[in-house]
Design a protein around this nucleic acid. Structure first.
Lengths: 126, 126
DNA sequence: GCCATTTGTTACTATTAAAGTCTCAGTTGT
DNA sequence: ACAACTGAGACTTTAATAGTAACAAATGGC
């Protein structure tokens, strides 16, 4: 994402983006497909196909990206059969879900406050 | 943890705790060993060995537990060789580290506000 | 129109982290 | 002495993540 909003020309192929962060072009394409569905980037197919930001960096928050790529929750709680005679076993999941919802919200609120522009500014400052 | 602070008798064997949350006694013992090193629980070896809370539930926060079990960061950023001519490749990790430190702190602050007592109260309310 | 190049998508494989299983030494109540 | 725990380590299993590969569809350049 930062690669798209930052460099000299701001449209990139999946191969170029993959090289810059040392991953595979396929992974980039899968990720871009998600970002594209979320309306954060746009893509062009065909020869000279590229990706570019669909919005101004200032308008894209890390929370937008987090949601778009459907990253895992900060915490998750596994399911298991309840041990009936034990009240802890039966209700712990609900209690933790409730508590950790708060934490998840704090986490997301923090991401929402950081925009792609902030990240780019920090990169350029070097 | 909630199992220790909640039920009728509040000292439990690893097997009992494992059954209540449907996991293995070995996993419980490995986890209890970490909690014990962090001073959150105490254990007794030998016949009739058990685990119990080392502090009042009110004094134990979810953050204490999170740190004790050394759970993974809410987010992590992988390392990779830098692509020298690209300023994004070279500086993105630093920029993201900085931004996500904020998020990690928000996350931990939220955990710090929830005590084991809160969780237990929520369980007992049912 | 034809070809080269790139995205979009899927299937399959490799890697890694997390938890499960097993085993045994050390401790301690009975 | 014995039984029943914890503590700890080796090894195995499982699930999530990313890599690899293959191919259809799109499109610019010739």
């Amino acid at each position: 994402m930062a690669g798209l909003g930052c460099c000299h020309q701001n449209a990139k192929t999946s191969t170029e983006l993959a090289q810059s962060v040392n991953t595979s072009a396929s992974f980039i394409r899968r990720t871009m497909a998600k970002l594209s569905k979320a309306g954060l980037v746009e893509t062009a197919t065909g020869k000279a196909g590229t990706c570019w930001l669909a919005q101004k960096p200032k308008q894209i928050s890390l929370l937008d990206i987090y949601h778009a790529v459907s990253a895992p929750k900060a915490f998750s709680i596994h399911s298991y059969p309840e041990n009936k005679p034990c009240e802890v076993s039966c209700h712990i999941k609900g209690a933790l879900d409730k508590a950790l919802d708060k934490t998840q919200r704090a986490f997301e609120a923090s991401l929402a406050k950081i925009s792609l522009e902030d990240i780019i500014a920090d990169i350029k400052q070097h």
